[in-house]
Amino acid sequence: MIDLYTIALNHRELGSPSHWDWLSEAEQQRARQFHIPQLTQRYVVSHAALRLVLGRHTGRHPSEIYFQTNAWGRPEINGGPHFSLTHSDSIAVIAVSISVPIGVDVEDISTKIDIDILRGIMSTEEIRRLDSSDPQGDALLRLWTRKEAILKAFGRGLSYDARQLTVGFDPAKFNFWRHVALREGNKTLDFILTDVCISERVTAAVALSGRSTDAAVTVRSVEI
């Protein structure tokens, strides 16, 4: 079971000063670095929501969630569960997996993808399709979110050359898992990927390490 949790980043209760105490000193310091109150609010809400969700999965108080980072900066919890946090505009999505590393990405449909930046992370096959079929709008966002989701599940982010990864522009098939191979040196690493329906306003994808395609995805709002 894969659990996806959504939270509106203008959530007043989670953004209130009383929930600052849930955050670590480093998180509080990061929140204060934003010079725009709305950005501070969104940071606090998303991280308080993450702690609330993980606390419920582990049986701990949100303030008792302690993060560590891997060699490439991905936050983790010793002993699990695996998780991923993403946000775009006014919504955040938290993905939780008990058994294997997970990655999630979401983009508001109004997001404009710079085609030159996109070309810098596209595989040779994807560039060929881009030049031949000229995909637009939602297709470009699908490619972006799919790549981000897999790279987050891999745990190395953009330190990995995304041009080695092909995810394509094909139309979304919600909750339909497909295998994606990622190469590292002489090794082939297996991931599964699916588009997920969060709302009509966003494009989203989730990825898992491994080949098993029997995982069920549940989407729900964070309840306080």
Rank of each mutant, 00 (worst) to 15 (best):
Y43I: 03
P62M: 01
S159E: 05
G157N: 04
V106A: 00
H19W: 08
H82I: 02
N78G: 08
L130A: 01
L52Y: 09
E64Q: 15
I77H: 06
G168I: 04
D190I: 01
L189F: 08
V45G: 09
A216K: 11
I117D: 09
S90A: 13
G185Y: 09
A216Q: 12
E25A: 14
S132P: 00
L140W: 02
L158N: 02
L39P: 00
W72N: 05
S221Q: 10
L14E: 05
G157K: 04
W22D: 11
T124W: 04
D116M: 13
E76Y: 14
N186Y: 08
S46G: 15
R60T: 06
L140F: 08
R183S: 15
S63P: 10
I2R: 02
S199A: 13
T213L: 13
S123A: 09
Q68V: 06
A215R: 11
R142D: 07
R156L: 10
D190V: 02
D214N: 15
S16H: 11
R156S: 14
N175V: 01
I91T: 11
Q41V: 00
I77T: 00
W22G: 00
T213A: 13
R201Q: 14
I36W: 11
S133A: 10
V180I: 13
G120E: 12
V206C: 08
L143K: 07
I115S: 10
T69K: 12
V196W: 05
L143M: 14
A49N: 04
S18V: 15
T58G: 01
T40F: 00
I2P: 01
E64S: 15
H57L: 00
H57W: 13
D131I: 08
S84T: 03
Q136M: 09
A8G: 13
D108N: 13
V44H: 07
A216P: 00
V206Q: 02
D131N: 15
I198H: 06
S212K: 13
L14A: 03
G73A: 03
I102M: 03
S46K: 03
D3T: 07
D114V: 00
A49G: 06
G168F: 04
S88F: 07
E27F: 00
F174V: 15
S221W: 03
H61W: 06
R146Q: 04
F154R: 11
R128I: 05
Y5G: 00
R32Q: 14
E13M: 06
R211K: 15
G103E: 05
E184H: 12
L4H: 07
E200Y: 11
Q68F: 08
V206E: 04
R128A: 12
A149Q: 01
F67L: 13
T166H: 14
F154H: 12
T69L: 02
N10E: 15
L143I: 02
R201L: 12
Q41L: 10
